[in-house]
Nucleic acid binder design. Structure first.
Lengths: 168, 168
DNA sequence: TTTTATTTTCAAAATATATTGAAAATTCAA
DNA sequence: TTGAATTTTCAATATATTTTGAAAATAAAA
């Protein structure tokens, strides 16, 4: 397979992949493009490569920066802004985990704390069923929260070498 | 907080939560409703509780069954079909992991295998950058794949008790 | 300054996704 | 069988999301 074709394929599947993870297709494609580009790119480069409008590029770049996945770089003597992606995939994964934990898991756990204190007779099967499910989710959620915290701090070498052994 | 209000809140947030995970809002809400219902429900019960159409309920129920998260139950003497959700959250999580691994991770790894064999001179920095990123993703992806396999087989007691220790 | 290059914004348009509801298909009981 | 109850389908509609592109804002050079 030729490089140009392989790049196309990668960008396109990374985009489709993203949509399964609540990430918008174009944002994931821009991320893919920057991942495989050896040098930083400008907004115009991205527009041209992906065939999308300036506004679209601009908005999704901002979002990628918010997620901590890409950053602005200023090249000496150049007027335009350039963008580059973190290439170390382990760091990328940890960054995404960190953000999603903050945005999704933590608010959910906070809500469950409130819901667990529902008033009513525990002998009422509706109450019991509700509280049981909420408690179960809370327990597992808290456990996941702690585990992810540790993962965020871990080194890839550690992860790759040891996690599998532990599971066996 | 009253049970009725707490139920509403839970169903609504579980729905919003789902949208961040590529799951459609209504499907997640139906799942939430069945999770907290002590007894199986019919399509009509769900229609009424969530205020959605028959067709919508029917399609999303089928999807939930495909995901292995709910199942049909036939009550003796009853003509209508009833539905019930797996209440053990650890089992639910394992089932979701299993499905997403099959639907998303495995096809992605298969694609990466092909992309890694891109033709071209490795001294070309474009080729090198591409291959390096693909290899990095592959390595981590394969590791995740194995780890998830082990997790799918694990017991919750094991998970809760031991995983955290291992990370420390 | 003023001019030009570049980035940002955001209303309108395009696209994609979810929902409805009524008709068709199926299932069960009489 | 026939007929009523129930489930399924799917074209049409509604809703939500993404994208565009031109105007406004900003930043750098002249």
């Amino acid at each position: 397979m030729k490089l140009s074709e392989a790049r196309q394929q990668f960008i396109s599947s990374w985009g489709a992949f993203g949509t399964h993870w609540g990430i918008n297709r174009t944002m994931a494609q821009i991320h893919a493009l920057l991942l495989i580009s050896p040098d930083p790119l400008t907004q115009d480069d991205i527009m041209e490569d992906l065939n999308i409008s300036r506004g679209n590029v601009n908005m999704n770049i901002r979002e990628l920066i918010n997620w901590g996945l890409i950053e602005r770089v200023l090249l000496p003597g150049e007027r335009k802004e350039y963008f580059t992606a973190e290439k170390d995939i382990w760091k990328v994964v940890k960054q995404i985990v960190k953000e999603r934990k903050k945005r999704e898991l933590e608010p959910m756990l906070k809500l469950l704390d409130q819901l667990e204190n529902v008033e009513g007779d525990k002998r009422d099967k509706n109450v019991k069923s509700f509280v049981d499910v909420i408690s179960g989710i809370k327990k597992l959620g808290n456990q996941a929260d702690k585990t992810l915290d540790t993962m965020i701090k871990a080194e890839e070498t550690w992860f790759v070498g040891n996690l599998l052994k532990m599971f066996k």
